[in-house]
Structure formats: C-alpha cells, structure tokens
Design a protein around this nucleic acid. Structure first.
Lengths: 198, 198
DNA sequence: GTCTATATAGCGATAGAC
DNA sequence: GTCTATCGCTATATAGAC
C-alpha cells in the first residue's frame, strides 16, 4: 500500500510542520512578529535549526504559513457569527467578534492586518484568503442597506481604528474595544438605509 | 567669554546631533523604524560608529530623540491649524491635517503612534509632549459640544483608523484618506450638540 | 530527517590611540 | 571628538556525517 504509506508520511510531515508553527506562534505572541528567530524557534520546538529548514525553506515561508493560519481563523470567525433576522444586530455581532479576535491576539492582528514584518509579503493565495473574508462583511452591510464601496471602507477603517488604538495605547484594558457598540450605531445611523449619503 | 564659548560649543554639539538625526530619519523613512542600524546610520552621516556614540549613548536614545522630534512636529501641526468661527470646519481642518501628517510620513506615524520598535519606549517627557497635543483636539471637540471622554476616544479611533488602513493597504494612494470629510461628518452628526449621547 | 559544525554576515557597543 | 580595530554576540542559512 504505497499510497497509504505516502499519506501517512504526508500526515507525519504535516504534523511536524504544525508543531513548528505552534512554537512560532508562542514566540510571536510573546514578543511580537519581529522577534521571531530561527534559533529560538528551533530551541522552543525541541529541534535544531537545520531541522526547521527541512520543513520550511525560509523564515518568510514560516511567516507565510502563519499568515495563512491567521487568515483561516479570520474566515472561520466570520463564518461562526450567527445570522438572525436583524441586520443591525448581525453587524454589531460581527464587529464585536472582530474586535475581540484582534485584541485577544495582538501579534496575530499585526501580522494579518498591518505590515509589521519588514521584507515579508504574504503569498497571493494567503492574501486572497484574507480578502475573501471581507465578502462576508460586504454582505452584512448590504443587508443593512449599505452598498457604496466607500462606505465599506469607512466601516473597516472605523473598526480597525478601535483595534489599533486599543492595541497601541491600552493593550491590557478595554478603553477602545468597549466602544464598539457606540461606533456601530454611529455608522449605521449614518449609512444604513434612511441615512444621508453625501 | 567662557560662557559664550560654552554656548558656542553647545550649539556645535546640538547641530552635530541634529545631523545624525537627519540621517536617521532618512534611513527610517526608507525602510521603516525597525531597519535603523547604527553602522548604516554612521555611514549615511559620514562619520564612524563610535562618533555616533559620542552624541547618543545608545540606539534607543536615538529613537527617543526621533520620537521627541516627531511629537514636536505633531504639536506644531496642531498649533498651525487655523481657528475660525465655525467649529465644524475647524475640526474638519484638523482631521485633514492629521491624516496628511501621518500618511505623508508613514514611518514617523509608526514611531509616534504605534509601538513599532521592539524594546523601545519613549521617555516620559517625550510621551507627555505627544499626549499634550491631544488637548488641542479636546478643545476643538468641546467647541463642537462634544465633552464625553469616550467620544474623544471614538474620534481618535476613527481618524487613526483611516490612517492605519491607508498606510497598511494602499500606501501610495488615497483610498481611505480621501474619506476624512465623510467620517468627520458622520462623527459630528452623531456626537456634536444635538446628537444623541447614548 | 536529524544531527554537529560552520559559513557568512550583520548587529550594538567599546577600548584605546591620536 | 574622531578614528581604527575589535569584542561578543546574534542572525539566516547550509554542508556533510549518520
């Protein structure tokens, strides 16, 4: 059963890669994306540096795999937000979930949404995954009568703004993240159907 | 004239320090705050590394001086925004100026408002300078009937959100920065006198 | 695949001559 | 104050034995 053995080997390899990524996330969560070092990563994973290179061809390949994991989590977060018959409540629920997603793991947020690693650009596939998650938000906004792409950009700016201020200026508190309800109401009162458009 | 000679020496020293900082800004503007290297800095400034240490005791001291310069520019920007008899127009003018200030020099924005240099924290004086600039904004908001500190936080989040999205996702365009007028209207229509407060 | 050992390069910072 | 020279360390990445 060569094919079965091949799959088994593949699974072993995948789980070994996953273990390296677990250690990578530990380091990045502790000291930020820029602090990831191959030596320290290997030490944390209980292997040596050359072994890391047996699974990832470069440090950027590790960042790309991490970016893809983060993007996948982001997509799943969007999918997990329940849909009701109240579009406003749905958007609010998504906003709360988004802010919590970012604030609860600031380094992941920095890797996914800011360009915080000099010299690293996500691969097109990984990036596309992250962008596609925006489609869910576009749909939620449409159900609230918001169709203008500019207003989608305003929405992302407003939510990201809360996250960025929270992470940068009050990393252990909730000074900005607690404002998500107010901000969502402000946005919807302005741009949801019935609001003025210029 | 020992005192005069002392002042002259001080001026020389200050201008030499300033020259180092000019080179530091060149490097940081080119490759981001994390890319600042003492060797490259010295090379760019036309001196050697030990000479840099004659003027700054460490790399972090350079970052702190840069932070102070950026904070000073920030304060001056706020002071330069003209005041009219129309509070809404004044806040709008300040918002436009702020976004332009950040977007036109993203690395400076990252150094000043994000925690983008691992291990660097601005000195209390430099930080206080940056915080004090917020007082101007507080006054502008008060003239618009916005007094709740939470609403000041919302205002900073909203403006920073535009900047962050612009810098992270469209660094050479104006996809988000052009929305500053819309966002300001949304904010004022919601929170300026006459708006609902809960 | 995993190791030891190392290549190659860069880093921040300092000693000591002048 | 400015230099040459260097310390001590870290970085990513690879060669080659097993």
């Amino acid at each position: 059963m060569l094919k079965g053995e091949g799959n088994w080997r593949e699974a072993r390899r995948a789980s070994a890669r996953a273990a390296v990524l677990v250690a990578a996330w530990e380091l990045v969560r502790a000291d930020g994306p820029a602090a990831l070092s191959m030596r320290e990563l290997a030490r944390r994973a209980g292997i040596t540096t050359p072994t890391v290179y047996a699974y990832f061809e470069s440090k950027n390949a590790i960042f790309d795999a991490m970016f893809a994991e983060a993007a996948q989590s982001f997509v799943e977060l969007k999918a997990a937000v329940p849909t009701t018959d109240d579009p406003r409540q749905d958007l609010l629920a998504e906003a709360r979930a988004f802010v919590e997603f970012c604030v609860s793991d600031a380094p992941r947020y920095q890797l996914l949404f800011q360009r915080s690693v000099p010299g690293f650009t996500p691969s097109p596939e990984s990036y596309e995954l992250a962008v596609s998650a925006l489609e869910v938000t576009r749909g939620l906004l449409a159900r609230n009568g918001v169709h203008d792409p500019r207003h989608l950009d305003i929405w992302t700016a407003v939510t990201v703004g809360l996250v960025d201020q929270q992470v940068s200026n009050d990393p252990d508190g909730d000074r900005w993240s607690r404002l998500v309800d107010d901000v969502t109401q402000m946005f919807l009162d302005r741009y949801a159907t019935g609001g003025v458009s210029s």
